Computed example of a mutant assay.
Amino acid sequence: MTKSATTTATGRPVWEVIDRRTLLRTTRDVEVTVETVRLPDGRIIDDYYQVGADDSASVFAETEDGLVVTIGHYSHGARRHCIGLPAGRIGPEETAEDAARRELLEETGYAAAEWTFLGSFVRNGNQGGGTDHLFHARNAHRVGEPASGDLEEMEVGLMTRGELRDALQDNRIAVLAHALGVSLGLLRGEAPGR
């Protein structure tokens, strides 16, 4: 049995977890649980399902001449080929930034000199699903060949900010964390005419 605090540091009421049971745990980063929660008004919800997954890191990496390093890949969740950012799960001994640096190198062969944290975002506001940590890397340059070992085949690309805006608007970026990473990257440090 797990019990959580009933207020946040700001004094706002939160849902109190009265009980939590694991229904499914896989070897590939997925856990499904059901919680019994007490709402601030006293109501009890007996079957509030949560889906847990490993946290991940994504990187909006720009080259010295302002092009963004992208990945073309098949996304099984989206059931289609799409454009994305270098990204992947965070290993047990890694920080989010370490994972972002590793994924950039493994998936694209690029490394970057300057890193800025863009934020951490829960995948699903009700069921959880893990947290995505987003980064902006500047002055990325090719240092080797991609060697990700991932299940999907990836195609490394370089896109202008305008091309990425178009890809976002045309729904060619199908994964939410990648769409958010692209959006935040485009907002950060945009130069006129790009």
Rank of each mutant, 00 (worst) to 15 (best):
T63M: 11
T63Q: 11
T63K: 12
E64I: 02
E64V: 04
D65T: 14
D65R: 13
D65K: 12
L67E: 15
L67C: 04
L67Q: 15
V69S: 09
T70V: 14
T70R: 09
T70S: 14
T70H: 11
I71L: 15
G72K: 07
G72R: 12
G72Y: 05
H73T: 01
H73R: 07
H73N: 00
S75D: 15
S75T: 12
S75L: 06
S75I: 03
S75C: 09
H76G: 01
G77M: 01
A78M: 07
A78L: 05
A78H: 02
R79Q: 13
H81R: 14
H81L: 03
H81W: 08
H81V: 09
I83Q: 15
G84Q: 06
G84M: 02
G84C: 02
L85P: 11
L85I: 09
L85K: 07
P86A: 15
P86T: 05
P86M: 04
A87T: 10
R89M: 12
R89C: 02
R89H: 07
R89T: 11
I90T: 11
G91R: 15
P92N: 09
P92V: 10
P92M: 05
E94D: 15
T95K: 10
T95W: 09
T95Y: 05
A96L: 05
A96P: 14
A96N: 08
E97H: 04
D98M: 14
D98T: 14
D98G: 13
D98S: 14
A99C: 11
A100I: 05
A100Y: 05
R101Y: 09
R102F: 03
R102G: 05
E103R: 13
E103Y: 12
E103M: 11
E103S: 11
E103V: 05
L104H: 11
L105T: 01
L105H: 12
E106F: 08
E106T: 14
E107W: 01
E107P: 03
E107I: 00
T108I: 04
T108D: 04
G109P: 10
G109Q: 13
Y110E: 13
A111Y: 03
A111E: 15
A112N: 08
A112Q: 09
A113M: 07
A113H: 09
E114Q: 13
W115E: 08
W115G: 11
T116L: 04
T116F: 01
T116W: 00
T116H: 06
T116Q: 07
F117P: 03
F117A: 07
F117V: 00
F117H: 12
F117D: 13
L118F: 03
L118V: 01
G119A: 01
G119L: 01
G119T: 00
S120G: 13
S120I: 04
F121L: 07
F121P: 02
V122L: 14
V122H: 03
R123L: 14
R123V: 02
N124E: 12
G125D: 01
G125T: 01
N126T: 00
N126M: 00
Q127V: 08
Q127I: 06
Q127E: 04
Q127F: 05
G128W: 10
G128Y: 10
G129H: 02
G129S: 01
G129C: 04
G130R: 08
T131A: 08
T131S: 06
T131W: 06
T131L: 06
D132Q: 10
F135I: 03
H136N: 07
H136T: 04
A137P: 12
A137Q: 12
R138I: 00
R138E: 10
R138M: 02
N139S: 15
N139G: 15
A140N: 06
A140D: 02
A140E: 03
